[in-house]
Design a protein around this nucleic acid. Sequence first.
DNA 1: GCCGTTAACTTAACATCGTTAAGTTAACGG
DNA 2: CCGTTAACTTAACGATGTTAAGTTAACGGC
Lengths: 208, 208
Amino acid sequence: MLTKSTSEQDRQELRARIMEVARDLFVQKGIDAVTMREIAKRIGYSATSIYLYFADKQALLREICESDFAAMASHIKVILEIADSGERLIAISNSYAKFALMYPNHYQLMYMTPHARYGISVDDEYKNNLEKDAYFQLRTVVNAVFLEGKFRKEWNDVDLIAQTLWAGIHGVCALQITMPKEDWINWRPVEHRLQMMQTLLKLGLTER
Amino acid sequence: MLTKSTSEQDRQELRARIMEVARDLFVQKGIDAVTMREIAKRIGYSATSIYLYFADKQALLREICESDFAAMASHIKVILEIADSGERLIAISNSYAKFALMYPNHYQLMYMTPHARYGISVDDEYKNNLEKDAYFQLRTVVNAVFLEGKFRKEWNDVDLIAQTLWAGIHGVCALQITMPKEDWINWRPVEHRLQMMQTLLKLGLTER
DNA sequence: GCCGTTAACTTAACATCGTTAAGTTAACGG
DNA sequence: CCGTTAACTTAACGATGTTAAGTTAACGGC
């Protein structure tokens, strides 16, 4: 080591660099396959230095997830200003999928990795927060559509509706990320699959 | 050790017992959290004895997966004999979800993990095989329903339909596996979410 | 019944993992 | 310029998957 990160800014930059490198490795190789020593090597420090910035591997992972959750929510936030609630719902779904497919690495860590198993528990500030919780954003829009009576009357559980919509979009994105070009499946373009999923869900929810 | 497993039958029984114990532990605690020593302790042998029956941990895991693939295949075989194609489609969807939620670790390995990462390559015998390839089974049933003209006429791409149905069920199961009880989400029971997904997709596909 | 061969099983050991404790060194205040 | 402190490193611990070497039980031939 030639120099030491002494200023607060230096500290934050190094912290951010650790998270950046760790996220790339986690996504690329899987969490358990990435060692603290490997992360350290990539940033040019010894393994134990990471522990000066994060309590342990779990804490590092949790912070990465939280940061990505926030990034995604802020990406979606602009949607909330669309006037028509139905259009807002379509837009939020599109935006969610766009994020997932544009940042598959982040998405994979956030929504395709069993959190409980790795002891991740997201910080309270990310829960039920319109700015930071993408699911809460979706639920909010679903609720608005519901209150305007746009759904068939048999659909009256806002959480159930939101969770099913989420699952539909998630399913398309997750399969696309997991098996983008497995040759034994005659994959249709992901845009078509997304479009069809949205149409089917909309028909089932609204048409009479 | 008082006695040794010398007969071929003894060998097979011990092999089966290892797989049984390992599967329980894998499902309960997650694959990476289960140690060979722990499995060994449960069967009353030393850790290295497992290596007399399986090449390594991955081989053990793969054999467990294949064994459960076979169980699922024979379970679905019955479904393929259901007369009404619409009911057949519902049944295959239920069966798929049941498998996913009963063996979340196996499901995760098969459909939620970028295969290239773990060097897993699905054996060719599992591709486009009515007995062993779940997607191909689904596509076959979708095709039957399509040929009977049960879908709205605007849905005329069998692959696109099958892939969208798959994504819907997969989405519910995958979210359930990834975040089974995150407390900031007011999760509805997974059975309800599955039911709603099936209903929405069916309405969108068939109702006029 | 004994004995050598073989296969089943165990113990010891290795490299590597996350993590902690102890040691070192660079930077800042006086 | 020196002492203090925080940043950073090296050494080490217990646990992991796995291999090598040692031990022991069972079977076949006499």
